[in-house]
Amino acid sequence: MDKPRVKVPKKVKAGEPFEVKALISHKMESGQRTDEATGQKIPRMIINTFTAKLDGEVVFSARFYPAVSANPYLAFWVVADKSGELEFTWVDDSGDSATAKKTIEVS
């Protein structure tokens, strides 16, 4: 999978929600299209799970379905009480995964 793009503020205030943006390049093949040349169904190949963890604890997760468009973009809010590392993981139908890490400083 391609390298994801993640945007989080470097410094956040304890207990105050901050926005996280996450974008990854993926074709998100729905499994419902037919290859015109062969007449065969193009097999489904989508990212099915996204997880965001703060120091190992899940703070946000999502399951994706075939209607999600290519290059899925997510924006969500997280609250942190102490500094730590945010880890983001995308997993697709082939079992392939992509990971991004961001350190946040909480004051």
Binding site: D2, R5, K7, K21, L23, S25
Partner: peptide
């Protein structure tokens, strides 16, 4: 960030 075109710029 939201503009997916930047994937290709990168």
């Amino acid at each position: 960030f939201e503009n997916s075109g930047y994937i290709w710029v990168e």
